[in-house]
Simulated scan of single mutants.
Amino acid sequence: MRRVPLRAVAVCGALLTVASCGRGGQDTGAGGRIPAAPAGVTAAAGSATSVHVMWNRASGDPGIVRYEVYRGTTKVKEVPGSQHMVDVTRLKPSTAYAFSVRARDADGRLGPPSERARATTPAAAAADDRPPSRPERPRGEAAGSRAVQLSWGTSTDDRSVASYDLYQGATKIHSVGGGQTAAVVTGLRPGTRYAFTVRARDAADNVSPASETVRITTPAGSDGGQGTSGGTAPTGFRAATHRADGAYYLDLSWVPPNAGMIDGVISEYQIQLDGQPATSLVWGGTAPRDKATYSFYVGREAGVTQRVRIRAKLPDGTWGGFSAERTVTTGAAGPAGP
């Protein structure tokens, strides 16, 4: 199978393109591969002195036993391989920070650092001992068999809400910025009953009472082959090629994940070719809600076959599940799709 390198092209209209490179595991030269760099790293200020860092599970052989979190070049946290989030505390107010994550496997091999995620802590609130109000009207629903979507009403504070913390039972599992009132929780088990609550936090680390409990049971069975993010994957994904001015272009179309269900607009996607990230798409204007289309240059040679799939960045900053994968060949007739 031949692969034509992607080249940057100008795109008219509101859609912006940003090239990105995947970071797969690297050969150590000793009969093994070091872990890949964790993907999907996000950072959000939780208060004036803390930042919540999250990432996706990294691949590695053997499995990942722990993750190391870095502030700049300094390691500040270390967590087990089963954990994919951490709160970095004792930070300075009104300060910009950059965080990265590295994976270590059972043989002690340390993978490369992830892309950096940046966050700025808010200003400290002097003599603030009043917590935000309790988040009201929490609601949620299953998004496939391994994910749920949660949303809640805005809390109030005498200054401002810095973040919202999500709890599964008594365990904090996620955090989003104070301007967000929705999140997608992934990595759940099919056919399992869960209980979630939400708490608001201000810049002085005052925490609100817990919201009412949202109880959700994930459906039994598989997630339809869409990975651990279930219903967060784009659907109706189709791919075809066309030729113009002596060059070939890849034409994609899809339905955004759970259009009308996720509380927020999907404005960023990642396209993978042959299992590797190739291009990121960011809508600079109004992103489509019902059907999205995109076309980009893939080269001038006919008969080149590639596998393509796409995933969305969800409103809470995490990546959703991948679409079905399609195989297309430049110069071939007919689209690849269901």
Rank of each mutant, 00 (worst) to 15 (best):
G337Q: 02
V76G: 01
P112S: 11
P131W: 06
E136I: 10
W254C: 09
I271N: 03
A37F: 11
G337W: 01
G230L: 01
N56A: 14
R3M: 10
A39Q: 13
Q270Y: 06
I271W: 01
A182N: 12
T42C: 07
K291W: 08
T279K: 12
P315S: 07
V41H: 02
L150H: 03
Y248A: 00
D165N: 10
T121R: 04
T213D: 08
T235W: 01
S47V: 09
A333I: 05
V282F: 12
T156C: 02
I271Q: 02
A117N: 04
E68P: 04
Q270I: 08
S50P: 01
P335A: 00
S295H: 11
A125T: 13
A8I: 07
A37D: 09
Y164Q: 09
R7K: 14
G275N: 11
Q149V: 14
G331L: 00
D263T: 14
E115A: 14
Y194A: 12
S222L: 05
I271A: 04
V11S: 12
S253V: 03
P35Y: 03
A103H: 02
A182D: 08
D263K: 09
A220V: 10
V76Q: 02
G221L: 01
G299C: 02
R2F: 05
M85T: 12
R130G: 02
A210Q: 10
G140R: 01
Q272E: 14
A123Y: 10
W283H: 10
A333E: 10
K75Q: 14
D87S: 09
R289F: 03
A10G: 11
R189T: 13
L250H: 01
T95K: 12
T154K: 15
A37R: 06
T42I: 07
D157R: 08
A58R: 02
G72D: 08
K172T: 05
S47Y: 03
V11C: 06
A39F: 11
R23K: 11
G32Q: 14
D128W: 11
T318N: 12
A259D: 08
V76K: 03
G225N: 03
S145V: 09
H242W: 00
K291Y: 04
V265H: 07
E78V: 10
G29W: 13
T181P: 04
V198W: 11
T235R: 03
T279C: 07
M54F: 13
